[in-house]
């Protein structure tokens, strides 16, 4: 029994005091959204095997609501996807909430019910949780931490060390959409666009890929985008990734926003995309399997792994010239003119 609870009022410091108000908040807003008592125990004892995958991630995104999702969906899918790309079957999540005094209870209920829906979509249970309230000004509305547990099939072997020259690089759809969507909202450019965040669960996609052939390694492209992932994979495996710029799928509106703001879609966050390095003979079969799933319907082959050499990642431009893909030094800064 999930669904948005009808409540009104605001979060107060009393809600974080551990007293009656805290219990009330849990009962009327959080648990009624999740549909069961998520905070009964401080830690969840769950049935499992030896190959346990565990992860945690904290979500501080602003704005909290964006086209295609909200901080709640991100918090569920982000952790589910971290488990999935490790080859695990995601099963259980915990949910830690940090709430700022003054947060509207109706918004909190909406985000909790959004988490519940997302958990159902991803096939995971939210089994434990914690809630803290901080004074006005000490947090930006709300933060969410989720930890996740999943189980890994003994036959799955994924790792940097499995990557070798000749392997093929795949991406599960167009990149940069979440980052462009949030950037387009944060800055007051007066742009009207229909960019929706790509946030989505990837567990099913990972499953069919692992069944379809030899996957060396997978990583979901979140903060730092595709560029950060391929650079990390190349450096960690001591190989060079050669990507073909025109083969990397980018939605037209995302490219347009990037051209206007002077950003590169390859450096913008995704929330429902993975990069996979697969054995060359199995590449077509894995790609076909990816495309058979909704969330992977836009999957593409974007490059190959070469013998290790500096620089770690190169891009073949449309002129056929090999250029270096370099990472931004820090935060993405707008150009002047």
């Amino acid at each position: 029994m999930t669904g948005q609870t009808s409540v009104s009022g605001q979060v107060t410091l009393a809600h974080g005091s551990g007293g009656r108000a805290s219990r009330e908040l849990l009962r009327t807003v959080i648990e009624s959204s999740f549909g069961h008592a998520v905070t009964q125990h401080d830690s969840a004892v769950v049935a499992g095997s030896d190959s346990l995958a565990i992860t945690t991630d904290t979500f501080v995104v602003s704005p909290r609501h964006f086209p295609g999702g909200d901080i709640g969906r991100l918090a569920v899918f982000g952790t589910v996807n971290d488990l999935a790309v490790a080859g695990a079957d995601p099963r259980y999540l915990t949910c830690g909430l940090v709430l700022e005094e003054g947060l509207e209870l109706s918004e909190l209920a909406g985000i909790c019910s959004s988490m519940a829906t997302a958990a159902a979509e991803a096939g995971v249970d939210i089994v434990a949780g914690d809630t803290k309230v901080v004074a006005r000004g000490q947090a930006d509305g709300m933060y969410i931490n989720t930890a996740g547990v999943g189980f890994v099939d003994d036959r799955v072997h994924l790792g940097f060390e499995e990557i070798r020259p000749g392997d093929v690089v795949l991406v599960s759809g167009d990149v940069g959409r979440h980052g462009a969507c949030v950037a387009g909202m944060r800055q007051d450019f007066g742009l009207s666009h229909d960019i929706h965040s790509d946030c989505a669960p990837l567990a099913q996609l990972c499953r069919v890929m692992l069944e379809a052939g030899t996957v060396r390694y997978m990583r979901d492209a979140t903060r730092g985008g595709l560029g950060a992932v391929v650079t990390e994979l190349a450096l960690a495996s001591g190989t060079r990734f050669q990507l073909v710029e025109d083969d990397i799928p980018v939605q037209g509106a995302v490219r347009a926003v990037c051209e206007l703001l002077g950003l590169s879609p390859l450096h913008l966050a995704c929330e429902g995309r993975l990069v996979a390095v697969v054995a060359e003979p199995d590449a077509d079969a894995i790609l076909a399997a990816m495309r058979s799933i909704d969330v992977g319907s836009g999957s593409c082959r974007i490059g190959v792994v070469r013998e290790g050499d500096e620089p770690p990642v190169t891009l073949l431009t449309y002129l056929g010239v090999e250029t270096v893909l370099s990472l931004p030094a820090g935060e993405l800064l707008p150009r002047i003119c």
Binding site: M185, D188, G190, L191, S192, H193, D194, G252, A253, R255, A256, V257, E259, L260, Y318, L319, G320
Partner: peptide
């Protein structure tokens, strides 16, 4: 979205076609 100029500029696939014309491979080569 809040727009101080009062008129939102649509950004979509059409906007990028303008850019793609200036990245034509045959003409460039």
């Amino acid at each position: 979205m809040n727009d101080p100029a009062g008129s939102a500029r649509p950004v979509g696939a059409d906007a990028i076609r303008f850019v793609d014309d200036f990245r034509d491979r045959e003409l460039s080569l």
